[in-house]
Design a protein around this nucleic acid. Structure first.
Lengths: 225, 225
DNA sequence: CCTCCTTGTTATCGAACGATAATAACGATA
DNA sequence: TATCGTTATTATCGTTCGATAACAAGGAGG
């Protein structure tokens, strides 16, 4: 009957440290991705998971520390999603096996970009201006990823399987083409009326990227996810 | 000798309405592009062109109106840069001529993205979350651009010149691949040590996009700019 | 039940924000 | 040079921000 003055039962909910931290991390990713570091407010990050704003400073040192922790968390997820796609040692590896692995990596990356658009949203927000955050993220998380792609791409180029594109250029062509539909999913829906996170959309997208970037590889379309 | 109390000659500078408006528009584009709508402050927009913050509300109605005016201005520049690249009527046009025009359009777009990174920075900032600004920008400025590309792409697909990619997907692959290096130029410099706005970089980039998206077109690399 | 450590809640601080009103200075025109 | 419309400058408003301190309440172990 909900007496007590018809006020909703304001239950004080107390969560374990690890739980509330993870909730705040995931909420922060959504807000940082959608509005950027400056645009996101700690009040709305907290509110999204039924917490109060000062809890952010209690569980993290500052807004900046929350950002750092959530980016660490997110790149951890990316690392899991891409685990084992590229052989650790590229020297002497068979180019055709590597090409198949690279194609698989593209498909997994597309799927990750669709499931966690926050990653590329945050990267594109931060990459537009120099900052300590950009420098840290680039050196800590992006560079290993970049180096792996460069090494594999070199082998594929020599083998004539990859499109004739310089590695540094390929990297941004790939990341831009693979992530924009999910980074800007709201715009895609407005403009095309379709949802880029539909599995058919993602599959067609990933297969297209494989086809144009690895023209030497016999076409083997497959679904992602 | 600069007497008068050694205070720098604080000259009150008075500009014509059109001049100060354009200065504020261009300053706003840089700030909105680098920090997004929320992150940009009217004080720093004004300061960048030696104006005071209230002048923005004097020459424009509000921060929102300044944003709208600067986006109008920017899409006007894009329209000039792409003027005449695609034939107005596509019905019955020769597919090979259209392909050459499309390739030219890609090169001009790459050059524009490099010279005015603010355009794609603003689009990517706004596209990450639904808002009245996104809706207005999409319907007013993006849709005509999108429709033109869709129509041309359909002809090129039927003629077998274009890569086998659905139009809606092609659009985001093209825009993402063409713009990311300039949207995130600070990151490119940190990560690769190269400047994507060098003319060799831009040319290699544009030629790569033409090659992978129009594989049926005989390769004719050329510099942009 | 009491203790004590952890977590949640409220109140409030100073800074920065966009906006507005009031005033001052410019500069073309007469 | 006096007038007057336009532009520039200063002061200040209310709001929101991130951060901190003080206090309240949960809950395991005794």
């Amino acid at each position: 009957m909900e007496r007590k003055g018809d006020v909703p039962n304001k239950v004080r909910l107390r969560r374990a440290r690890a739980d509330i931290r993870e909730a705040l991390l995931e909420s922060a990713l959504v807000e940082f991705g959608a509005k950027g570091f400056d645009g996101a407010s700690t009040r709305s990050i907290a509110q999204r998971v039924e917490a109060h704003q000062p809890q952010i400073n209690y569980h993290f040192e500052s807004k900046e520390a929350l950002w750092t922790a959530s980016v660490d968390y997110l790149f951890g997820l990316l690392g899991e999603a891409l685990e084992g796609v590229l052989p650790a040692a590229l020297a002497g590896v068979d180019a055709w096996e590597l090409a198949a692995a690279f194609a698989g990596g593209i498909r997994r990356f597309v799927q990750f970009a669709a499931e966690h658009p926050e990653l590329n949203q945050i990267m594109v927000h931060e990459g537009t201006a120099n900052s300590a955050r950009l420098e840290w993220m680039t050196e800590t998380h992006v560079r290993p990823f970049f180096d792996g792609i460069m090494a594999a791409w070199h082998v594929l180029r020599v083998a004539g399987i990859a499109a004739p594109i310089d590695g540094g250029i390929l990297y941004y062509v790939l990341i831009g083409a693979a992530s924009l539909p999910y980074v800007n999913a709201p715009e895609v829906r407005l403009l095309t009326g379709r949802n880029p996170r539909d599995s058919e959309w993602m599959s067609a997208h990933a297969n297209a990227l494989v086809a144009i970037l690895l023209p030497g590889l016999p076409r083997t379309d497959r679904p992602v996810g």
